[in-house]
Each structure stands twice: as C-alpha cells, then as structure tokens.
C-alpha cells in the first residue's frame, strides 16, 4: 500500500471572529497518496486554496490536524514550517512570483542555494524547456516562460510535493498545455506529489485524483481510471 503524503482530520479554518467569522474550511478529512497528481476543483471561496495554504505550510489551521508523512504541520513552529517549505515543498503561483532582479537561472539558484538536495539549476530549466533562455530576466520572458521558470524553481529542490495555485490561470491554451506537460513530467520523473488548484474542470482529466470542493468542505473525490495527456485536454 502506498503511504500518504498528506492526511488531514477535521481540518478547520475560520477567518475573523463572532458574527463576521468566515468558515473557509469546515472539518476536512482527506488523504493524498504519494506520487499522485491531484486536482482540487471548486468555485472561488470553496476552500481549496485555504487547504493548499495550510498543507503548504503558509498558513495555520484553526482546528484539526494536517499530517505530512507523520509530521503534524499544525504543531510546527514558524522555524519548522520554514524548514518544511525549504526542504519539501515547491510552489507555483498564478502570477509566477519571480524575482524581477534575477535572471531565470538565478531565480532557480535562489532555491538551489538553500535546498538540501537540489538538482542543477540548468537541468531544472532544461526540464521545462528553457535551456536557451537561462540568462534572461523575467521582463524578457513571456508569461508562459515565466511560469516555466517558476516551475523550474519549484522543482529544482527535488520537492516531495509541488503545489500549484491556478498555474495556468494567466496563460493561453498552448502555453497552458506546455506548463501542464511540465508538471506531468515532474510527477513522472521525480515522483513528486503534485497538487493543482484550479477553476478549470477540464484539467481534472490529467489527474489521478480529483477532489471537488464546495462551501469549505469536500463534496466528492473522484479517482481517474484513464488519465488524459495535457494535449488531449479540452481548453
């Protein structure tokens, strides 16, 4: 039996207090097995990003437990969470969040310099098909290229898990597909668990597991018998 990368119990997140309190997560129980591509689907405000933030070590739950392997993220100190992000987690954001003052290679090196067991930065950039543009600054790259640098930066540390929050949200279909292909490659070649948060239901077709969110809870979990490649996905 494969072990779980994440496993949550009664995970709850409440913003604010009293009457103005917003329940972003209402007691989520969830297991995410190692090495899968998991897509979290749901409308805005359904809680999927909140879940991703908590298990990504960016935010803390109000209640419940979130285990990464057998470590309880809810009990980690700030320092331990930083360590956790540094050693295990790669992030890809909708708006790339690259450092504009560093070249593509340097953006990747930003991570390889501090990671425990990183790959070579050029290798990471080659993986996302940017071998030729390593010395370009973000301003000299297209949106898709910037996102691929962001992915290279995220995978260069050999992460255990890759979190992608609307990774194709700002991209056209061709570029979006190439980005998804990279994510698929990373999953297959590195064995990293990939979590993708998206609005686009069609992208669910490439996942091993699709988790549907609504009103701060999981409505259903669907296991994909037959995965599609990004090229086969309708955009």
């Amino acid at each position: 039996m494969t072990r779980n990368t994440f496993s949550t119990k009664g995970l709850t997140k409440v913003y604010g207090e009293g009457r103005s309190a917003v329940h972003a997560l209402r007691g989520v129980d969830l297991d995410i097995p190692e090495g899968e591509i998991v897509v979290l689907l749901g409308p805005s405000g359904s809680g999927k990003s909140t879940l991703l933030n908590i298990i990504g070590g960016l935010d803390r739950a109000t209640d419940g437990t979130a285990l990464f392997h057998d470590q309880n993220l809810s009990e980690m100190s700030d320092r331990e969470l930083t360590r956790y992000r540094r050693d295990h987690v790669g992030f890809v954001f909708q708006f790339y969040n690259l450092m504009p003052s560093l070249t593509a290679r340097e953006n990747v090196e930003l991570v390889t310099e501090i990671a425990r067991d990183p790959m070579d930065s050029d290798e990471a950039l080659a993986m996302v098909g940017l071998r030729e543009r390593v010395d370009h600054f973000p301003a000299q790259l297209s949106g898709g290229e910037q996102q691929r640098v962001a992915i290279a930066r995220a995978v260069a540390k050999n992460p255990t898990v890759l979190f992608c929050d609307e990774p194709t949200g700002a991209l056209d279909s061709t570029t979006g597909r190439s980005v998804l292909n990279v994510l698929k490659d990373v999953n297959e070649k590195l064995g990293a668990t990939v979590l993708i948060v998206t609005h686009a239901a069609s992208q669910a077709a490439m996942a091993d597991r699709v988790i549907h969110f609504a009103d701060g809870g999981i409505r259903k979990v669907v296991l994909n018998e037959k995965k599609l490649t990004p090229e086969e996905i309708e955009w």
């Binding site: 320092r79 930083t82 540094r86 987690v89 450092m99 501090i114 990671a115 540390k157």
Partner: peptide, 16 residues
C-alpha cells in the same frame, strides 16, 4: 513586500 513573501514561501528564513 511581495518579493519578500515569495522568498519566505520558497523557504527562506526570516533572517535571509
């Protein structure tokens, strides 16, 4: 602030 938050997310410590 956004760049700095990105660095923290990537795994930079507060001091870094």
């Amino acid at each position: 602030s956004r760049d700095l938050a990105s660095l923290r997310v990537i795994g930079f410590t507060r001091a870094e």
